[in-house]
Design a protein around this nucleic acid. Structure first.
Length: 132
DNA sequence: CAATTGACTTGAT
DNA sequence: TATCAAGCCAATT
């Protein structure tokens, strides 16, 4: 019991909430999870994703500059850009997308609730949610 | 438990 | 605008 949910799992839960046509940067994800300076950790979590985790729209996470930052895999970066373009996002000649236009701005209370719920669900699937 | 790594970010040059 | 260095975090070894 009490197996605390890994930071990575929370990252996946949040990334799953990003709607099509919208994106989030690593730092933002970390901030929404309560770790303002955990951008690198988020990137680490994304790199840990495997082809089987198709439920996680990893391609909707870009760097703060509005550019894809997959390293060691030019093909991966190309795929990410292709998937985003397929959702209507456009890139300029330098390979940047418009963050002002595509950055996802969720209602913080809602996101916090989802994270809180994720922690609870993954920690104790059977714990009865409440009652009041 | 210490060292290493990496899909990051920001500020300075 | 492009490059460099330092700061910060979690998972791995």
């Amino acid at each position: 019991m009490s197996s605390s949910v890994s930071f990575n799992q929370l990252v996946y839960v949040l990334v799953r909430q990003i709607p099509p046509g919208k994106v989030l940067n690593y730092g933002r994800v970390a901030q929404l999870l309560g770790v303002p300076h955990g951008a690198r950790a988020v990137g680490w979590a994304m790199s840990a994703l495997k082809s089987g985790d198709q439920g996680v729209p990893w391609y909707r996470v870009v760097n703060a500059q509005g550019r894809v930052s997959i390293k060691g895999s030019p093909a991966g970066a190309a795929e990410q850009r292709a998937r985003l373009e397929a959702e209507g996002i456009t890139f300029d000649e330098r390979g940047y997308l418009d963050m002002k236009q595509h950055l996802w701005r969720p209602a913080l209370p809602e996101v916090e609730a989802i994270i809180r719920q994720a922690r609870g669900d993954l920690e104790s699937p059977e714990s009865d949610v409440d009652t009041d």
